[in-house]
């Protein structure tokens, strides 16, 4: 269903640095129901990738929907996706619209 989201984009972020380098806010049961990128740190994998921007909302991580997940659970999923050695990248499904 994620790919049917209007105006969503798949962004593949290679693990090119020791950190992912994004800050997120939001999650289920908050004013921002899906995690939104609030910071991108220079020199992190996300910054190096060049395709993620502040304000974008993350719909899915490696095909896993973040809908209905509370902030900590969403943050854990992203952290695990970065930590796992199974993949050299993380796929984010993002949208510009809140």
């Amino acid at each position: 269903p994620g790919l049917l989201e209007p105006m969503s984009t798949l962004v593949r972020v290679p693990k090119s640095a020791n950190t992912l380098g994004i800050a997120i806010e939001g999650g289920a049961n908050t004013r921002q129901p899906l995690p939104r990128i609030v910071t991108i740190q220079r020199g992190g994998s996300a910054h190096n990738c060049g395709q993620l921007k502040v304000g974008q909302v993350i719909l899915e991580v490696n095909g896993i929907s973040l809908r209905g997940r509370e902030h900590r659970e969403a943050a854990c999923l992203i952290a695990e996706a970065f930590k796992t050695k199974e993949k050299e990248y993380i796929d984010f499904l993002i949208t510009e619209f809140n």
């Binding site: 992912l20 994004i22 997120i24 806010e25 908050t30 921002q32 609030v38 910071t39 740190q41 952290a79």
Partner: peptide, 15 residues
């Protein structure tokens, strides 16, 4: 709408 306004702000996590 009104219901949304009652929801708390989220914490921020650096990843």
């Amino acid at each position: 709408r009104e219901k949304r306004l009652t929801l708390p702000p989220s914490e921020i996590t650096l990843l």
